[in-house]
Design a binder for these strands. Structure first.
Length: 287
DNA sequence: AGCCAGGCCCAAC
DNA sequence: GTTGGGCATGGC
């Protein structure tokens, strides 16, 4: 068991702010999840975070996954300096870290997210993983049952569309199929999309079925460290309208406002705002 | 019953 | 380049 002191880090914020769907709480401040085919139990007491894994696994995998080499205090200060109104949202979600998740998992997950609810996205991802992901043995199966990795592209690509539909994906069945086929057929180039500059990466992602500007931004923000990505969804529109008076149905005005107020760290601002706005209307997020 | 949810596709302009 | 209708699913 590794115990590490970490500033600007709260498991609850990290796991419930809407960026990931494969972690579950088994006790107060104690979570189990799977990422990159590896299972982790992680818990926290104050600034001390306990990683139930080897030093090797922590350095190779989890340190980057949790974005632990970034100084979030500087990011927060810069954001507040440029836009003082953000202070409230940042205070609420002060323990958020933008995770570095797997690109293919984010591709499929956020295709599923379109016109959908977070609890249902979580359930659909779980079904896909249970059905087509490799089972990863772990020591907490008596508590939470078996865990499965996210399906590999070539496996998902072989699943018939009607089978995807029967899992509850709705009209997104075709998008998932086509995007899995495309990602599998050019997987190394797919995984390299995150190395491209933001605009080029976004354009390339939008050639995938079911991926528009919003989903592309989510993929880039949550898997590739593209912090200039600012996903615009219904919640963010609501926030910008309610708090700043930006009209919800004027895309250009929204874009202009974002560029003018949130700067190079706008992806972080997006996540603080999204988490805070949702908390105001979801009692399970209220602290 | 109708509206909403981390929107996208496609046709029409 | 922008706009609007349609769209599976399920909770409220």
């Amino acid at each position: 068991m590794l115990s590490i002191e970490i500033e600007d880090f709260q498991l609850n914020d990290v796991f419930t702010c809407g960026q990931c769907f494969r972690w579950q709480a088994i006790a107060e401040n104690k979570w189990i999840g799977i990422a990159g085919g590896e299972v982790l139990c992680v818990s926290q007491n104050g600034k001390t975070v306990y990683f139930d894994c080897s030093q090797e696994a922590f350095e190779r995998h989890w340190r980057h996954y949790f974005d632990l080499d970034r100084h979030y205090d500087e990011i927060k200060k810069t954001l507040i300096k440029g836009s003082p109104d953000l202070a409230e949202a940042i205070a609420f979600g002060s323990g958020i870290r933008l995770l570095n998740q797997e690109p293919f998992e984010m591709l499929i997950t956020f295709i599923l997210s379109a016109n959908n609810h977070i609890p249902r996205i979580t359930e659909l991802v779980r079904r896909l993983c249970t059905a087509y992901g490799e089972r990863v043995p772990h020591q907490w199966e008596s508590i939470i049952g078996p865990l499965h990795a996210f399906p590999k592209p070539e496996v998902l690509a072989e699943v018939p569309i009607e089978t995807l539909r029967s899992l509850g994906t709705g009209y997104r069945d075709v998008y998932i199929h086509e995007s899995a086929v495309k990602a599998a057929s050019e997987f190394s180039s797919f995984e390299a999309i995150g190395d491209l500059p933001y605009e080029a990466a976004k354009a390339k992602l939008m050639t995938f079925s079911g991926v528009g500007p919003k989903v592309a931004d989510c993929i880039l923000l949550f898997s590739s460290g593209k912090h200039e990505a600012f996903p615009i969804d219904t919640w963010i529109k609501k926030t910008l309208a309610r708090r700043y008076g930006v009209p919800e149905n004027k895309p250009k005005q929204i874009q202009n406002f974002i560029e003018a107020n949130f700067g190079v760290y706008k992806g972080f601002a997006n996540q603080y705002l999204f988490y805070y706005e949702r908390s105001l209307q979801n009692e399970h997020l209220i602290k």
